[in-house]
Design a protein around this nucleic acid. Structure first.
Ligand code: NAD
Ligand code: NAD
Lengths: 220, 220
DNA sequence: TTATATTTGTGAATCAATTCACATTCATTA
DNA sequence: TAATGAATGTGAATTGATTCACAAATATAA
């Protein structure tokens, strides 16, 4: 829904900031605030007002000069841009430590990310019930992904097997993958792959503590 | 350990790429590769050779012209830069879904991030044993953090209480925090705060599926 | 209705990150 | 020991992202 046949390429940072605005607008909505200025949005996210306005301007003009942006309306529009105005069918592969945590996380569902299928290869886990979902056998991966029209796959298996799993996921026609395994997965050009790398953030803190103790802390 | 009184400011992306190089060098070391060129490092991380060389050049010159970089030596040097040549004392606050997963994750320890303390406010959890660590009462937070010389704190409590917890953590003199709660925490300038925001990555995938279906997939 | 105050939306300017391109250095081979 | 090839390290050029600055639009108050 990028206006005018996506003239400009939208940067990753802009999209991440849209997520921040979306979350903040939800808070403002709860506080029954009707409008909000770029100045206020910026202050609450430690950004500049110009940045906020520029980010939004890529997608249209949502504000009123002299007044600001209508909170609920802007939230709705950003939701549309991010695809949060619809439901997504998600499958999770690997119900270990991190996989179990994700299944039990209600926030994803609230945002429209519905975990419909869970896979594992451990016979003790297959058939067991996690939050109302029966763990499926990884052997039926491709068939089940297709039959259930899964759109997003979350990888939470050991790093050693992640590439094999991803190859099968790609074969099943999946175009969006979120990977928790600390490994560089290879996917075709037309598949979106994002990595959730917790070690990286710990390492950033470690670097900061060792190197930056004159400078200041940095949020993301 | 930035050379020459940290003239240049090192960008966040450079540090994240150092993490990637570090992981890749571990793999190359296991494969008994002695040297590696910027070209090969770049190919395996989908970067350009110039980028790799520039990143490393901020910290010194580690390579040999005509030959490349010595794998083990470079890994050691990057480890030093990232502070992975030492042990870090970490405390985890909140042993719920995600907190339990983190406690059970051996990879952090292998990298020198040792979870020494776990806190919760749930009486049923306090005193119970998680992977050899007894859950402490959140009431003793400040005292315990100081006595155990904790350097990094991981926040895994509900978003509603995260700010109160962080305030206490800061009072205890902690300068590095990794936060999993989806909320914008306020910390003083001299405290490093990083946010691990999984929703953000799912939202990026959602955006990509809705908007970018002419373009291509993008790794991080 | 007019004047004043706000705040947007956006080109232009600036700042930052990435890529280019090449002199320099070293390994290797003849 | 000289010639060849490979790959680094780094200023310069380029590309991209952020900030500036201001005209235009609207709200609000007189
Ligand atoms: N636990 C954490 O906090 C954490 C943090 C960051 C990253 N990670 C990464 O996430 C991944 C999972 O970590 P974890 O701690 O949950 O590990 P885990 O061992 O607890 O869970 C892995 C799960 O995958 C299943 N599995 C293994 N092979 C499979 C296959 N071929 N097909 C289907 N399922 C298979 C296992 O049966 C198990 O249930 C790992 O790559 C890990 O490095 C974990
Ligand atoms: N579960 C996930 O997969 C996931 C993913 C992304 C983000 N998160 C975020 O991580 C945080 C934890 O999520 P969760 O699913 O583990 O929740 P959870 O409810 O399972 O765990 C929260 C834990 O914090 C403890 N707690 C509550 N108040 C406390 C206090 N004042 N002091 C100390 N401990 C306290 C609770 O007793 C509980 O053990 C939340 O902010 C959540 O939004 C979770």
């Amino acid at each position: 829904m990028i206006s005018e046949s996506s003239k400009r390429r939208i940067s990753e940072s802009t999209i991440h900031r849209l997520s921040l605005y979306y979350r903040l607008l939800s808070v403002l909505e709860k506080e029954s605030k009707e409008t909000v200025s770029s100045k206020e949005l910026a202050e609450r996210e430690k950004l500049t007002p110009a940045q906020v306005r520029k980010d939004l301007s890529f997608f249209g003009s949502f504000g009123t000069r002299g007044l600001g942006y209508p909170v609920s309306e802007l939230k709705r529009r950003i939701g549309e841009i991010l695809g949060l105005d619809r439901q997504w069918s998600v499958a999770l592969i690997g119900v270990g430590n991190i996989g179990s945590a994700l299944v039990g996380y209600k926030e994803f569902q609230r945002q429209g990310f519905n975990i419909k299928l869970i896979f594992d290869n451990d016979q003790r886990k297959i058939g067991s019930n996690h939050k109302g979902i029966v763990v499926a056998d990884i052997k039926n991966l491709e068939k089940e992904l297709r039959e259930n029209k899964i759109e997003i796959v979350v990888i939470a298996v050991p790093a050693t097997v992640a590439q094999y799993i991803v190859d099968d996921v790609v074969k099943a026609g999946i175009k969006a993958i979120l990977n928790f395994a600390p490994v560089n997965l290879k996917v075709p050009e037309d598949v979106f792959l994002r990595n959730e790398n917790m070690s990286m953030e710990l390492e950033y803190l470690s670097f900061a503590l060792v190197n930056l103790f004159n400078g200041r802390g940095t949020n993301r």
